[in-house]
């Protein structure tokens, strides 16, 4: 309750133009928004640009926010709309340098994978694999999965942000999981099922 009152007070102060309150809103939500945008766009530069644009819009439209309790989902909605704007304006091409999931990349060759005596740990390579497979999902499934699973939001909150029904959100997350399961099986195999010559 106290936290709600604090958020409410800070939102009111930010709406009045208090710079410290605006900065608080940024510091509170920008890390998660930035990560959400990176997972959606697949590019650090794009994520940075869209994060900046999102918070500029948040600051300009803060006066129209009626319920401070909806601040988080409201910011996510703005960020999500900016992602869709970006996809509508141009085709986003994954920067191969940030996602070495292609056959040419040395990071994920068959040899390197199976040279490890242990199962592949959560290394930088795995993060890139996860991001690559995530970017392979259709936008609708990707956003449901990122919000509901990665960001650990409830299905109702995801529904509020995306504008789709709870049932649609549940189905989209399920379909995203099954698609990722199928793709990740190619990368996360135990060493016992190594390739040729072993």
């Amino acid at each position: 309750m106290d936290e709600d009152r604090t958020v409410g007070r800070l939102v009111r102060e930010a709406q009045g133009g208090d710079r410290a309150a605006i900065q608080w809103i940024y510091e509170e939500f920008a890390p998660r928004i930035h990560n959400f945008l990176y997972r959606m766009l697949g590019s650090r530069e794009e994520a940075e640009d869209v994060t900046q644009q999102t918070f500029l819009i948040v600051i300009r439209r803060l006066g129209s926010l009626r319920d401070a309790g909806q601040l988080e989902s409201w910011i996510y909605r703005i960020a999500r709309n900016e992602v869709y704007q970006k996809f509508r304006r141009k085709k986003i091409v994954r920067e191969e340098s940030e996602h070495p999931g292609s056959a040419e990349s040395p990071a994920l060759t068959e040899e390197r994978l199976h040279a490890n005596p242990e199962r592949l740990l959560l290394t930088r390579e795995l993060r890139e694999v996860l991001q690559t497979t995530l970017l392979g999902l259709p936008l609708k499934l990707r956003e449901a999965f990122v919000l509901g699973v990665v960001e650990e939001m409830g299905y109702r909150d995801v529904s509020r942000i995306t504008g789709r029904s709870v049932l649609s959100v549940k189905t989209d997350i399920y379909r995203a999981r099954m698609s990722l399961k199928k793709e990740l099986r190619k990368y996360l195999r135990p060493v016992g099922k190594a390739g040729t010559g072993q």
Binding site: H34, Q52, V149
Partner: peptide
């Protein structure tokens, strides 16, 4: 799969971003 995605290291927020905003 859920754990793998939740455990993946988050991207750091660029420090200069607030100044730009």
């Amino acid at each position: 799969i859920t754990e793998a995605y939740r455990s993946a290291e988050p991207l750091d927020l660029p420090p200069h971003l607030w100044a730009r905003i």
